[in-house]
């Protein structure tokens, strides 16, 4: 396995603000990698450091083994799909896609042949003569993708690529991006604040918070065994249980997470955990319940059925003790 991108102790300061705090990260060639985190967590800055739009204040960046922190973006074999697509408004679609070929002085007819092939790849053949202003949001995104891929970069960076699209289009594009990545074998690194998007698309995820990486792992690892309270809360919408509550349950105090789908709620007062339903929302195949147990709220997601407890009803809460995942003491 070749390392495509390697960050060692990368730090980026903006005045007094520490946007990236000694980031260590290795991204493997050919993987679909997600950088996940809330806004201001440093994920976009990290992407911009890899692209070359930001220079690290300190640390080492290597791309395919070559030191890159002093290489300007136009000399990096890395391309970017921007959040606002950044299509050149004064050029039509084909000239947008052929822009990098024009700079490399590729001969005109060959340039257009390659650009047309890239457009075909994103299912936009025949749109070459249009202006970016005449395209829909989804089409613009495809043009941006074709433009970034026309040179077959070693690494493709995507900054919130689906953020501006509506739900249906977003799901369709998720599928297409995944199959495109598999087909081309190019390393994709994408930034998102949507944990569902990261889970469904990425081979591996890095969770960012406050300029640091909280955890790196496959979606399953991140979801099932979150390393910290932040990851448990941000990624899985898990129940994060405080030490004393866990102590009363198990006799061993300490932070723990509990996935909502591992929790069973039954009417009546049979088990040892008794609480009251404070909210119930029907999600179709499943129903989400929030139960208040002596001041501690626990979320449960259960298959929808005919006899779901009502709001205000007394209920018993139970779960398999092995579903309780111990968390590190750090936030």
């Amino acid at each position: 396995m070749t390392t495509a991108v390697s960050l060692k102790a990368i730090t980026r300061r903006f005045g007094d603000v520490l946007a990236l705090d000694a980031i260590d990260l290795d991204i493997v060639e050919g993987e679909f990698f997600a950088m996940l985190g809330p806004s201001g967590s440093g994920k976009t800055t990290c992407l911009r450091v890899i692209a070359g739009f930001e220079q690290p204040s300190s640390g080492e960046l290597a791309i395919f083994g070559e030191r890159a922190e002093t290489v300007p973006p136009y000399k990096r074999n890395v391309n970017t799909v921007f959040q606002d697509y950044a299509l050149f408004p004064h050029l039509n679609v084909i000239d947008n896609v052929a822009y990098s070929l024009m700079l490399r002085k590729v001969e005109r007819s060959e340039r257009y042949r390659q650009a047309e092939a890239a457009l075909e790849m994103v299912k936009l053949s025949g749109y070459g003569a249009r202006r970016p202003g005449q395209l829909s949001g989804g089409q613009r995104q495809r043009v941006a993708l074709a433009r970034a891929l026309v040179n077959r970069p070693k690494v493709l960076l995507l900054d919130e690529p689906l953020g501006a699209l509506d739900l249906k289009l977003r799901e369709q594009m998720q599928e297409e991006l995944k199959s495109l990545q598999k087909r081309l074998g190019i390393t994709f690194i994408f930034v998102t604040h949507d944990q569902g998007e990261a889970m469904s698309m990425a081979d591996r995820i890095a969770v960012f918070n406050l300029g640091r990486i909280m955890q790196v792992g496959t979606p399953e690892e991140i979801y099932l065994t979150p390393a910290s309270r932040f990851v448990a809360d941000f990624v899985g919408s898990s129940n994060v249980l405080p030490p004393d509550f866990v102590g009363t349950l198990t006799g061993k105090p300490g932070w723990a997470s509990l996935r909502p789908e591992a929790v069973t709620v039954t009417a009546g007062a049979g088990a040892n955990l008794i609480g009251m339903v404070v909210s119930r929302s029907y999600l179709g195949a499943t129903t989400r319940l929030t139960v208040d147990i002596a001041g501690q709220r626990i979320h449960a997601v259960m298959p929808s059925g005919p006899a779901m407890p009502e709001e205000g009803e007394q209920v018993a809460v139970s779960f398999d003790p092995s579903a309780l995942h111990r968390l590190a003491d750090t936030p």
Binding site: A51, G52, F53, P72, P73, Y74, V78, N79, T80, F82, Q83, D84, A86, L87, F88, P89, Y99, S100, L103, R104, R147, A148, N151
Partner: peptide
């Protein structure tokens, strides 16, 4: 003119003068 246009151009291989 969005600032990302300039970044996009450099990203695609144009130096500052290009």
């Amino acid at each position: 003119t969005s600032g990302s246009l300039i970044e996009a151009s450099m990203d695609l291989g144009a130096d500052q003068f290009q």
